[in-house]
């Protein structure tokens, strides 16, 4: 079953008088449970594409179905609800909530997005902190932990609501390569264990070996597909 189906997706940004084409007819399918990645140089359209999949932005033309939902049909609030229900986000610069502790950051989506009762939250949060190896940091605030720890925490947060899909735009760009590698490995491990689809973007071709499916993006178009496992 495909969790993402993109057909001839176009995205054009308008900058004043000029149109900037960021995606120029992108088509692909990503199967459920796959650990997939978009690789490409700066400006190739990786962020644009992930934003469209994540319902943070709207496409200009084409067809995009995410988790069986035609995402072009959603309005502002529906998109927020869709994101909360189906998608976990990991950001390049972590985007943790500074006033919440490690524990509370992971708990946040359960409280503010999903309304999960307290007793069921605790178990979930603790098991995720355990899974990302952050149990001993639970009472610290984001400014008290390292970059790698931040991204592990962000990974746990992205997974709290049991999303069908986790999107990570250059999750390792702000980390040194050793830490970056560990983060990718962690994501991959969690993807396997939980069966969640992970899609991330990177311009670091070294980590490709860890990934099931790699799409190469150049100039807003897919120029290569490398399928190492699963997917088509």
């Amino acid at each position: 079953m495909s969790i993402i189906i993109a057909q001839d997706v176009h995205k054009v940004y308008r900058m004043g008088e000029v149109n900037v084409p960021a995606l120029r007819g992108v088509s692909f399918k990503i199967e459920s449970g796959v650990f997939a990645s978009f690789v490409g140089p700066s400006g190739s359209g990786k962020t644009t594409l992930l934003n469209l999949i994540g319902c943070l932005d709207q496409l200009t033309d084409g067809q995009l179905t995410v988790a069986d939902q035609d995402v072009s049909a959603l309005n502002y609030t529906e998109r927020a609800r869709f994101r909360g229900d189906h998608i976990g986000f990991i950001f390049q610069d972590f985007n943790l909530i500074p006033v919440l502790t490690v524990y509370e950051n992971v708990e946040y989506p359960l409280v503010m997005v999903k309304n999960v009762p307290k007793n069921r939250r605790k178990e979930k949060v603790l098991s995720l902190l355990e899974a990302v190896g952050m149990s001993d940091q639970r009472d610290k605030f984001p400014n008290q932990i390292s970059g790698g720890q931040k991204q592990r925490l962000a990974t746990a947060r992205a997974l709290t609501t049991d999303p069908k899909l986790v999107l990570a735009d250059e999750p390792t760009a702000n980390l040194d390569s050793a830490t970056a590698y560990k983060i990718i490995e962690l994501m991959r491990k969690l993807s396997r264990e939980i069966g969640t689809t992970f899609v991330f973007s990177t311009h670091d071709t070294k980590i490709i070996s860890e990934v099931d499916t790699v799409y190469t993006l150049e100039d807003g178009m897919i120029t290569g597909t490398l399928i190492q496992k699963g997917a088509e």
Binding site: G54, L56, Y76, T77, A80, R81, F82, R83, G84, D85, I87, G88, F89, F91, N95, I97, P98, Y108, P109, M112, V113, R157, A158, T161
Partner: peptide, 16 residues
């Protein structure tokens, strides 16, 4: 702004 963007991105509804 950025923090609000994060809250919104991860699905916090506007009224919250």
């Amino acid at each position: 702004v950025k923090e609000i963007g994060t809250l919104a991105a991860i699905g916090t509804l506007p009224w919250k």
